[in-house]
Design a protein around this nucleic acid. Structure first.
Lengths: 224, 224
DNA sequence: TGTACATCAGTGAACGCGCGTTCACTGATGTAC
DNA sequence: TGTACATCAGTGAACGCGCGTTCACTGATGTAC
């Protein structure tokens, strides 16, 4: 690559990084101005037009990068957890929180903007979540330990709840970083413990699953 | 109440309603300007200062109102579902979606701003979510059908997952309203079916729960 | 009941400011010969 | 290798616009007598 191309690509990425940084400081993407971004990245406002037509195009590229990161973390952890029978739930969850903590920015952006104020990001994120759910569903289909739960709609429901909860858990973990330092440790432990309980609640549900045709009568806690 | 007071209160509420309307159209609260709001409510911008010191105070009042609505819906449905053994899960979920659909605005505001771009709303909503979880936890404590799950931390984990999922489900239901009309019906049915599956997954997990001291070994799907 | 004054929700002009976008430019890098 | 020209990432001035906020005001409603 030529010197000029190299430098351009570096600026390009610096702008995206600066936008992610601003978003991670708790700003809604729809509320980040081009001029503010130009200050963050230390370029003149007009320079940004050499890289992006407008903030929307920038947002779409930012979503592409953050989605890729999230996909790779979830896939990696999913593989490790579901294909290694000796992986403890608590270990898997600790690995998850560790991954989130070491790069919280993509999670913050993805989760904040999921129901946030930009139409194009909202729909883009819903598409990405859909892909995550489909991928996970096909992974779950292959698992022998899920034989009692083989109906596609059951597996999709499970995949969806796992993705939704992952995002919720990630956000709760990140929120702890914003607390005063002296209480962080106890919150982290409580968060971990609670997440493990929730995951195990799901695992017990899976273990004792009956396909929908079998469970239409007894589906209330008091009626079983 | 005097005529003047009455009219003032009416304007006051009209401003809050207009803000909720703008938020429901997909705008981030942090991105709603005082002038835009004044246009929506058909008052001159400066008139808003007679009612609110600034947008933050308005946001806090708006959060109070929306929280109250959400609390009352969740409490009502929770009572109906948990205290009537003959309430089918599918019926409870249909009632929930019906409640959300008839007044989607508070849910949209609450869920969008939960991880949104305003610090004061984020912390306010987290406080409200915490109250919801505590309330639900104490309701669950009283239930005889949850005797196998009586450790406080287990109940808190359950209450938290139920609240988090309620918000996720509400948002998914509302998102369907934004789709083209001809595919809405099928999406609604799929959403309902999937939500029922997810709720039943949790119910089976509850039924077969063992308190944490009993389950430290066998907590992986493949190891049981 | 009628009058004189006080209150105060809402008005409209004015302000300074940050915004997105345009445009002509600069000067380092790339290309052709 | 050296020269002459082309490209183009980044610059800086300028624009019109919507913003939050101030201020003096208006006129309907409330209050005191």
């Amino acid at each position: 690559m030529s010197l000029r191309e190299e430098r351009k690509q570096k600026s390009h990425q610096a702008i995206l990084d600066a936008a992610l940084r601003l978003s991670s400081r708790g700003r809604a993407f729809s509320n980040i101005s081009l001029r503010e971004l130009s200050r963050e990245v230390e370029l003149v406002p007009t320079a940004l037009y050499r890289h992006f037509k407008d903030m929307q195009q920038l947002g779409i590229e930012l979503l592409d990068q953050t989605s890729l990161h999230i996909k790779s973390v979830l896939n990696q952890l999913g593989q490790a957890y579901f294909y290694q029978a000796n992986t403890r739930t608590s270990t898997a969850i600790e690995l998850f929180f560790q991954a989130v903590e070491s790069h919280p920015e993509p999670w913050l952006f993805f989760i904040s903007e999921r129901w946030g104020g930009s139409d194009f990001l909202r729909s883009g994120i819903e598409r990405e979540v859909h892909f995550l759910v489909e991928d996970l569903m096909h992974e779950l289909e292959k698992m022998q330990s899920l034989q009692q739960m083989n109906a596609p709609q059951d597996l999709r429901g499970l995949a969806q709840i796992l993705i939704d909860l992952s995002l919720t858990w990630a956000m709760r973990w990140i929120s702890i970083q914003r607390l005063p330092e002296d209480i962080r440790h106890s919150h982290r432990e409580a968060c971990k413990a609670q997440t493990i309980i929730q995951m195990q609640l799901l695992l017990r549900g899976i273990l004792h699953w009956q396909s929908s045709s079998q469970r239409t009568i007894a589906d209330h806690p008091d009626s079983v």
